[in-house]
């Protein structure tokens, strides 16, 4: 493993992607009742695929970072005309927009968000932070004249 390739920005993205994936199997919505609770995760009926999209997008980001850092795979410089920094920013923003939308959405008063939702929300924010860190790092890098 070539760890020297993993920048702080990529560590944030990799960690956030992993957290997002794990959290997706935890409770997204929670319906408590005396003595217990009914829960649904992002892969359950009624939530899959729309609530699973942030997981897939975050997973793709983490996979790209992981493949470049550990798999020694050379990626093309651009994807669909976008630099990889732009791709990460766009995917991270889409993740956070979706999670924000779920947060704002009205739900029956008895239904609450579970730990999985909050972890996914935090991971989505971390993905944006990681993507912005990548862009900031690229801008600081000295360019050849």
């Amino acid at each position: 493993m070539n760890r020297t390739k993993l920048s702080p920005a990529n560590i944030v993205i990799l960690a956030a992607g992993v957290v997002m994936l794990i959290a997706s199997f935890m409770s997204f919505y929670r319906l408590p009742f005396p003595g217990g609770a009914v829960t649904a995760n992002a892969w359950d009926r009624g939530l899959f695929l729309i609530a699973t999209l942030p997981v897939l997008l975050g997973g793709f980001m983490a996979l790209q970072v992981g493949l470049v850092a550990f798999g020694r795979i050379d990626m093309p410089n651009r994807l669909l005309g976008l630099t990889w920094d732009q791709v990460h920013l766009v995917l991270a923003l889409q993740c956070v927009v979706l999670m924000l939308a779920f947060w704002v959405e009205s739900r029956p008063p008895t239904v609450t968000f579970g730990a999985g939702f909050w972890l996914m929300f935090a991971a989505a924010i971390a993905l944006v932070v990681g993507a912005l860190m990548r862009i900031a790092t690229t801008r600081r890098r000295p360019r050849a004249i």
């Binding site: 009624g46 899959f48 695929l49 729309i50 999209l53 669909l80 005309g81 976008l82 766009v90 889409q94």
Partner: peptide, 20 residues
């Protein structure tokens, strides 16, 4: 346009496969 279009397409597939 490309980014918004592809994300809209992705969400469309998302809703298509979501059991509503």
């Amino acid at each position: 346009h490309l980014v918004l279009g592809l994300m809209a397409g992705l969400m469309a597939v998302g809703w298509l496969l979501t059991d509503t």
